[in-house]
Structure formats: C-alpha cells, structure tokens
Design a protein around this nucleic acid. Structure first.
Lengths: 243, 243
DNA sequence: AAAGAATTGAGAGCAGTGCTCTCTGTATTC
DNA sequence: GAATACAGAGAGCACTGCTCTCAATTCTTT
C-alpha cells in the first residue's frame, strides 16, 4: 500500500524517503511523456512501469491507482500553466493592464498549443470515472482566473476600466454569487465587471479549446494567430479595458 | 468483414438488408445508452454485444471497429444538436434576431446539459487515436455555426446589426480567410461581423463547456441559469444584435 | 551488533478490453 | 435442389488495471 506523504516532519528526510520521492518524480516525468505522446485516456500504468524498468505491480507501491497518477499530472499541468501565465503577465509593467491581459491570453494559448494533451486533461472532457479531488486541485486550478481578475481589479482601482457595450441587469441570485466571490477574492470591482470577467474567462478558453481540439475545420483558418489576436482584442473590450 | 452500405440501389431493400439496418440501429441505440452512462472512452464493443445478446465478434459484422461506432455516435449527436438548435431558432419569428440568437444559445446549453457525454464527444478532448473522418462529420458538424451565422446574416440584411464596442482591424491573412468563408456560405455580412460571429460562437461553447465539464467550482455559482443568460446577453451585444 | 519491523520489487493471477480467425448453421440466390 | 452469401459462436492473442503472495533488502530498535 502506498505511504501517505509524511506530514510536515521536522526531521530531515531519510535516504529511503529521498529515494521514494525521486521514484515518484520519475513516475510523474514518464507519465508526462506518455500523456504528451498518447493522451490521457491511453495513459497506462503498465507502460509507465516498463519505462521505469520495473514490473507493473511495483508502481502501485508509489501510486495508489491510475486515477492518482492522473491527479498528479493534473496538478503538475495546472502549475505549469499557472507559472507560464504569471511569468507572461509580470513581464509587463504593472500599469499596462491591456498589455497584461493580452499577455495572459497569449500565454494560455501558447501553452495549450505546446501541451495539447495536458490542456485536454485540464479543460477537455473529464476522464471517465475520474473526478479530480477538489482539495488537491482547487488551488492550482484557479490560478488563471485569479490572475485574470487581478488584472481587471488593478485596472478598476486605477480607474482605467470603462463599461462598454450593453450592461444586462444582474439577476438577484447571480449578484449574490458574484458578491460572495468578490468578498472571497478580496476584489474591488463591482459585480457587473466580475460577471463580464467570467465571460471573458470562459470565452478565452473556448477559443483556445476550439483551436486545440480541432473544432475549426482542418483548413478553415490559415491565420489562426491573427484570429486569436482579434478575439483577444474584442474580449479586452468586453472586459472594459482600454484599447 | 462488414458490408459497405449498398450504394443507393433503386431496388427495394431485401429482408436481409432490412434486418441488417435494424441491427445497426440497435447497435447505435445501445451505444448511445452506454455513452450516456459511462462516457466515450469507456465505450466497449463487448459490452454493446452483451446488451445486444450476441457474442462480441458478431458485432464486427456490422461495425468495422470501435472507431466506426464512435463515428456513428458522433454523427448522431451532431444531428441531434443541430435538430434541437434549428427547432429552437425556428420557433421564433424570422425577424426576431435577438430572440433567435438567445434561443440558439439556450438550445445548445440545454442539449449539452441533457447529454453531457455526447457533448463531450463532440466538443471535449478528442478520443485518443481517434480522428473523426471529415467527410462524414463536416456536414452535421457545422450546423450550429451555420445557424448562428444565418441569424446574424439575416439581421445584417435587415439592417438591425450595429457594431458596438471596439472594432480591431483585421489582419490581411485573417481577412482573406473570412472572405473565403463568406463566399462559401453565401453571406452578406462584412468580414468584421464574421470575425465577431466566430468569437461569439467559440465563446458560447466555452461557457457551455466550463459548465458541463465542471470547470466552475463545485458550488461557486448557484445561479448558473442566470449566469448563462447574462453571458448570452453580452455576447449578443458583441455580435451587434439589438438588446 | 543482532533482532525485529518496514519497505520494496517480482511474479502469478483475475477480469476486462479490442480485434482476428476459423468453423457451423441458416438464409438467399441461381 | 445446389451453390453461395452471411450471421453468429467460440477460441485465441496481446493488452489493460489491479490484487495477492513471497523473497530480498533496508531501516529501526534493542
């Protein structure tokens, strides 16, 4: 039976613990390679064991089952995406809200095109019979929307956010949800901006998903970079960012 | 080896052909049930055979392999979605462009929530090792975007389409792609509207996918109907439809 | 240092999968 | 009625996830 990770022990790790951690890292690394090559649904613990040079039952000493390996890869991918987004956003001056927004979008798309299988694991159809454990993924899984709302909140506080386009009234229960989110995230933006931010968020991933999953026809759009740039510009307007 | 469908014969179908067609329909029906219950990646020809009361090798007389069954289910699902969307759109008067747009969006969402596994098959991560044959899916697969662009084109021809929000310039290669699409679909709308229509299209599916695939937190949004209605209203504005 | 306990990997095994092949009985066609 | 086409059964191969047992190694405790 796999051992639970030792709970924050103050002692230095024993050699065995170090070896164990290294083996788990190897498993995740090989799993990532297989994920990139064959996709999540084809991820096989036996194949990982073969690449690790070990018999299949041995990896069950480190990973409870296939699901747990998927969870490890999920968290790994979420963090990679989050790192990429954070780096792209912080490469621009703090006051350049539109630039940061565009950088965020481009970073998401670039990462998705670079790691389509990981992207599919995060944002595609859920792997059947697999429900990601919320307590292990909710942190890294929210990094993109946190970064996006942080940009919008910064723009709002700086007075650079202008409401353009129609502003549909917010139904009462929706406003309540949004108020709760605003409080939890410590945001200054009003609920209406929050709602538009959510739309921009889902729209961004909708555009990326269509591209990664091949929903556009095979050769409908040759100018995909330009198409995405256009979409991003319109979405910036939806969010209220200056052009 | 499975027989190819008889090529448009003028003769009436023989009893054997009728029985064959009925068996294939049964296979698809059972496949749909399994798809709805367990998802695409867990779809098993052997399980379908069991439900059909037949040994596993027998279904290979009718379906070449698992992929072909997935293709049959894919086309089936595309047509179901297309029918639902068409019915919803045509339930409203031809001149009510905003109403038709909203009805289209609601129809997509309702169908997706009713048939999440089918929706995942169409718009989620591609099933690994499976590439949908374009010649069998491109027709039914484009029905939603055709219906959407038809609404926008009608509104444009009626002079009800106003450009709101920023209008980013279209890069030359993008404009070329859009011009080609416009010609192929016989549309009157200018390229800029086409580009926004594409964004609205992907955004609609992005919002639906996040909901169906559980990307929103488990209980982040209680008012999902209202959230979607809000998003649809904003997207209508993005498309230029009157509020 | 010796004994006991924990951990690790190997190997066999079970139930399931996709798919192929061969064989037999039946239905259709000539 | 004979020849043919077809449908289904059954065995079999290679693969999967996962469990169980057993032996070897390593760590911990006395």
């Amino acid at each position: 039976m796999p051992q639970p990770a030792p709970a924050l022990s103050l002692k230095p790790p024993t050699p065995r613990e170090r070896a164990r951690a290294r083996t788990i890292r190897d498993i995740v690394r090989i799993g990532r390679e297989h994920l990139a090559l064959h996709g999540a649904a084809a991820l096989s613990l036996r194949a990982v064991a073969r690449d690790l040079g070990v018999v299949s039952s041995a990896v069950y000493r480190y990973v409870e089952n296939r699901e747990e390996l998927l969870t490890l890869l999920l968290v790994d991918a979420y963090n990679e995406l989050g790192d990429a987004v954070d780096a792209a956003v912080e490469a621009l001056p703090q006051g350049d809200f539109s630039g940061r927004f565009a950088a965020l979008g481009v970073a998401v798309r670039n990462w998705a095109l670079r790691e389509p299988a990981s992207y599919a694991l995060l944002f595609g159809s859920p792997v059947p019979g697999y429900q990601a454990p919320a307590e292990r993924t909710s942190g890294p899984g929210t990094r993109v929307i946190v970064a996006l709302m942080s940009v919008l909140d910064g723009a709002w506080r700086a007075g650079s956010l202008s409401g353009a386009g129609p502003h549909p009234a917010l139904a009462v229960p929706l406003a309540a949800d949004l108020a709760k989110i605003r409080a939890e995230m410590g945001l200054a933006v009003p609920e209406a901006v929050l709602a538009r931010g959510a739309l921009v968020w889902t729209s961004l991933f909708g555009a990326v998903s269509f591209e990664v999953f091949g929903q556009y026809g095979a050769d409908t759009f040759a100018a995909r970079d330009e198409l995405f740039a256009h979409h991003l510009a319109v979405l910036a307007g939806v969010a209220g960012l200056p052009t």
